[in-house]
Nucleic acid binder design. Structure first.
Length: 405
DNA sequence: CGAGATTCATGTGAAGTATACCTTTAGGCTTAA
DNA sequence: AAGCCTAAAGGTATACTTCACATGAATCTCGTA
């Protein structure tokens, strides 16, 4: 039997591999953003008028995940805020990720959340939406403010609820007498702006900046820079940086992923009492990241979604056991779903709703569900799990426990 | 044999309902002058 | 009379249901070669 106290004493005594883990965490803003000088310059010059208390143009940033959009905006805003503080300007920034479920995924919730960030108390439901707008406006008019509003992953809200929000937001300036507001939209979807109302498009996209993906060489440089902050140089094994960069370059140059790989690899090395981060830990890190991501998505899912997902796993498992062709459809899932509701004592939803839930699970990337026509045999969704076998087992257990099955 | 009609299972949109929560309003009670 | 509390009335957002119509290719039908 291992003495826990001994282990903990040991742990405390050892320094661990990390010198400073923060530099590899996703919310870290480095003082130096490599390969984005051009974009930083553009953003800065577009937003600079705010320091004369003039409203900057609305701004739109495009680029795949991990191309530094959020980072660049954060970096520039941080600097602007510092200068504004020196100058005593009443400049405020609000950053909001529109993808967050149950926080900012409808018009009401989005506006309410912005107002909350500004210190206005808004109930979760009950108010008319235009009342929330009024509160928001009132909150801005309390004193002369220039608000820079960053809406990250803005395409998500528009996909779900239409572009009315954007129209209202761009219009809000005309209602403001004292204060002004600039909107900075961030989107991963390059096609996004073509889908919105032309009026919104012209006012929102006054300025546009595209962020190209990083290539493998650039990723390596970025990794080295951060690694230097996080580790002593000899801790990183041969070829580790290169491999991280290569992995991430495959995924459309996602720097966030590259950094996460390195961090998790470091944590795994540490846990294994290794003196060095070796290439093999990166493979493990890859898997762990994916597992954590999926576990995180599944665990924050509402109950009905969990039951639905559990049913999908069950059906998929059945087919695998029988060794039949693995195709299954909405109807199959619904039958199993109803049984699962019965055994968990939950009131089953209608098939209409479960169909929507399946579509949403597809959106979250945990399953694949494509609408197909089976000709004579109708039209439905062909469903499959989008997660590797070992992770499926894990979420299966998780769900069983969570649902009491 | 092939063009067009048929068919199936469920996708999908619109409208309605239940629930939980909000503000307003009116009445009743208390309090202080 | 003014102030405060409470409960009812009237309103909303959201998640879900109900209803009704839309879909799209495999299959069927039937006229033609």
């Amino acid at each position: 039997m291992v003495d826990v106290k001994d282990f903990l004493r040991d742990y405390a005594k050892n320094e661990g591999l990390f010198k400073n883990k923060k530099a590899l965490q996703s919310n870290y803003t480095p003082s130096n953003v490599p390969y984005r000088d051009e974009q930083i310059g553009q953003v800065a010059s577009i937003l600079a008028p705010s320091l004369r208390m003039e409203r900057p143009s609305n701004l739109f940033l495009y680029g795949k995940t991990g191309t530094g959009k959020t980072l660049v905006i954060g970096h520039v805003l941080e600097n602007i805020l510092e200068v504004a503080k020196e100058e005593g300007l009443n400049l405020k920034t609000v950053y909001l990720n529109c993808k967050l479920k149950r926080v900012a995924d409808t018009e009401y919730r989005l506006i309410a959340q912005i107002a909350r960030e500004l210190g206005q108390d808004i109930p979760a439901t009950g108010l008319p939406t235009d009342e929330v707008y009024k509160l928001f406006v009132k909150c801005l008019e309390k004193e002369k403010i220039l608000l820079l509003l960053v809406l990250d992953e803005i395409d998500e809200v528009v996909k779900n609820t239409g572009d009315k929000i954007l129209y209202n937001l761009t219009r809000i300036n005309s209602e403001l007498k004292e204060s002004e507001i600039s909107i900075i939209g961030i989107s991963n979807d390059l096609m996004f702006i073509d889908q919105v109302d032309p009026r919104v498009k012209s006012s929102l996209g006054e300025e546009e900046i595209v962020f190209p993906p990083y290539n493998a060489i650039q990723l390596q440089k970025i990794l080295r820079e951060r690694a230097e902050l996080s580790f002593e140089s000899k801790i990183i094994g041969e070829g580790v940086i290169e491999k991280c960069a290569a992995y991430a370059a495959k995924e459309h140059g996602d720097a966030r992923r590259a950094l996460e790989l390195l961090r998790v690899a470091g944590e795994l090395a540490e846990r294994n009492n290794s003196e060095q981060i070796l290439v093999k830990y990166i493979d493990n890190a890859e898997e762990k990241i994916e597992r954590d991501r999926v576990v995180d998505i599944v665990s924050t899912q509402p109950k009905q979604f969990k039951i639905t997902l559990f049913s999908i796993i069950q059906v998929s498992d059945e087919y695998a056991k029988k060794n039949e062709s693995g195709d299954f459809y909405t109807g199959d899932i619904y039958e199993v779903y109803k049984n699962n509701c019965l055994s968990t004592g939950t009131k089953p939803l209608t098939q209409r709703r479960v169909g929507d839930i399946i579509a949403e699970l597809d959106m979250s990337g945990i399953i694949n569900a494509r609408v197909i026509s089976k000709g004579r045999y109708g039209r439905t969704r062909r469903i499959s799990l989008a997660v590797p076998e070992n992770i499926v087992k894990k979420i299966d257990l998780m769900l069983r426990e969570g649902l009491g099955l």
